[in-house]
Write a protein that binds this DNA or RNA. Structure first.
Lengths: 321, 321
DNA sequence: ACAATAAGGTTGACATTGTCATGTGTACGC
DNA sequence: GCGTACACATGACAATGTCAACCTTATTGT
């Protein structure tokens, strides 16, 4: 998984889309080959699919839905009818249109095709691992959602939030170390000591984990992690929670994710019974600072330090809950 | 389409993939229509594309790459040749194969097609907004990466050195935590305690780092990390080095990367003056075990443990240098 | 050196798939 | 009821894809 290259220009995005089209035209040929092992054409299979998933349909509906030529479709239906897989009868309300339905026979034939296709996909997914599968499915759903709007029916409600928060899963903690390391190196030139600090925090989190009083949130979009934060018990001060490892991927900034993560932390800390939420940050992180200020945090302490390979000013912020 | 749900069962994942296939077969028809406004067939356009993006090709290469019937392709090329868009000449090294190249004319014709296709995609993307565009591209890249490994990769010839080794850079240590967490969870069901252990190892590595006697290697392929290992001083036994965090991505297995990483470790340890190289692993990791055995490591200790949420047998292996 | 075999490419015959124009019957507004 | 639009069917045909036979050149094994 490459660090999801964000397109810099419109041309890059266009290329990426075209590259995907080429990739998927090749691929779809391979994926859709269930029909090759049957005596149905791809078009016929698609028709059968549509019929199996709606009670009855008119030819015009099918043609529109599948983008088939009316004449061509007529012939496909004729053939399916001859093989007694579908019935066609005049619609009551309009003698021009024909109600097309699958016969029991047709339904049975389709079931075979269907399970064969499922098996094919299962074979594709099987060696893949849960994490990858989830990512694949999420990415496919994202594409569908993003492209669907214009052309196909707008029958879907406005998908509410383009991201979701969840607690951590295997791999997430490592992801946090990785992305902190990469982004703070890229954006501020911090060295590996920062990455090591994050690794330490993460490992301590697991070592001392108290599910009732501590939590880690991951912001996920299209199956891809785009943000994180955790709330842990302050090691020395009872009743005080510590917010740590707030991060939002550059590609997902400006959506209010950082804000949302901090809010979630505050809500949790308050509800859990802490009286204070504290955090340590650095003066150079201005975007984060704004979030903390807006949430009501007060700057209580500042001190210069030179970890991470730079002269920095560390800050402690606190919020009374 | 429901708001990006994560699949609960394998069946859900299969359905999701099939849904996407159906969606994209419809969609690709619409996206790829640039060729409809030209006097080239889709297949011909694909051939032109391939030719435009490589210096020259043989018919067999094209047929393989585009999954076209040899006879069909021959005819397409014949037609393109007649229209003076490509030239075909015998290859020097093998009189059976023909070197096929685009002529200047062909290049010009392709450029028109190409820009038309770009315009189409641009029109698709234009109303979309930056964030959505980025999401779309990221999702497409994710799918390509996830699906590409298995099938298309096989077509790729064994290019000489498909990977390179280097020492670690910012982000690499976090990457190691992440991938260890994900892969051991996917493949063996290990829990976050393993991930935390890796994070601890990584953070200790940085805290005590002695560049002259310790090192971390990353295997990189196509700019992507695909493997790792590190050699560190044994904390208690002077003169003993420890090999840790050997990992190879599933997509890059079978290329001898694991072997190579271990060899590198041995070479380094020997050269640095250690007298022994030791490592801790688990009996379930059979692939790794084979590498250690082949490299001459001896099993010196075994003990059951139940970290990581499973009953496991830990093993210590050693090699005299 | 030579036969057997395989690979690259071409061609003819053919099947499948898709397109277009046209025709028939029906619905509907005026 | 007349004109127009729609649903569907059909004929004619073009485009696309498949298969097997064939020629030529390499490669392999003996």
């Amino acid at each position: 998984m490459p660090p999801a290259t964000t397109p810099r220009t419109a041309a890059d995005a266009i290329d990426a889309v075209r590259r995907f089209n080429r990739f998927y035209t090749r691929r779809i040929h391979i994926l859709d080959e269930a029909h090759l092992r049957s005596d149905f054409s791809l078009a016929a299979v698609r028709v059968l699919y549509e019929l199996a998933h709606r009670h009855a349909a008119s030819a015009a509906e099918l043609a529109r839905e599948l983008d088939l030529d009316a004449g061509y479709l007529s012939r496909i239906l004729g053939d399916l009818g001859r093989r007694q897989l579908v019935t066609r009868q005049r619609a009551d309300h309009d003698a021009r249109v024909s109600r097309i339905r699958l016969t029991a026979r047709g339904r049975a034939r389709y079931a075979v095709l269907d399970s064969r296709a499922s098996d094919d996909i299962a074979a594709l997914l099987e060696p893949m691992g849960d994490t990858s599968q989830r990512r694949l499915v999420a990415a496919m759903e994202a594409i569908t959602t993003l492209l669907d709007d214009g052309t196909t029916a707008n029958d879907r409600p406005q998908n509410a939030a383009p991201y979701l928060l969840r607690t951590h899963r295997p791999g997430d903690l490592g992801w946090m170390v990785w992305r902190h390391g990469v982004l703070y190196s890229d954006e501020y030139g911090w060295d590996e000591h920062f990455e090591a600090l994050v690794a330490r925090i993460v490992s301590d989190f697991v070592a001392n984990f108290d599910p009732a009083h501590e939590r880690c949130w991951i912001a996920e979009r299209d199956g891809e992690n785009v943000g994180s934060v955790m709330a842990v018990r302050h090691p020395e001060r009872p009743g005080v929670a510590k917010l740590r490892l707030l991060l939002v991927e550059p590609s997902a900034r400006g959506l209010g994710i950082g804000r949302r993560l901090v809010d979630e932390c505050i809500r949790f800390s308050r509800q859990t019974g802490y009286h204070t939420l504290t955090l340590w940050t650095n003066s150079v992180l201005v975007a984060a600072r704004r979030i903390y200020e807006a949430a009501g945090f007060q700057l209580v302490h500042e001190a210069p330090h030179d970890e991470f390979g730079h002269d920095l000013i560390g800050q402690t912020w606190e919020l009374s809950l």
